[in-house]
């Protein structure tokens, strides 16, 4: 049971990390540095964090 829940969770952890941490972190950095791209900063954060996390999940590496 635990394995069935945690297996997929751990496998997709880089993507979750991208959404759960990198996205709001990117938003905070954008807000603090007064960068405006005409899109809500959180949306940019979600795109960057989500894409980067998805890449790390797919490739098994962040860089």
């Amino acid at each position: 049971m635990i394995r069935a829940i945690l297996g997929p969770l751990m496998k997709n952890m880089p993507f979750l990390f991208g959404i759960g941490f990198l996205a709001p972190l990117t938003k905070e950095v954008l807000v603090l540095s007064h960068v405006s791209l005409g899109v809500p900063p959180l949306a940019i954060g979600l795109v960057i964090g989500g894409t980067w996390g998805a890449f790390a999940t797919w490739k098994g590496r962040w860089i």
Binding site: L6, M13, L16, F17, G20, F21, A23, P24, L25, K27, E28, V29, L32
Partner: peptide
Amino acid sequence: ALVFQLSYLAILFTLAWTGHALVAALIWW
């Protein structure tokens, strides 16, 4: 180890989504 790892991530995510992402990044991550 699993409990530690999941707790660490849960704390980071909670701090980040409550407006403290930079604090979490620069004090821990």
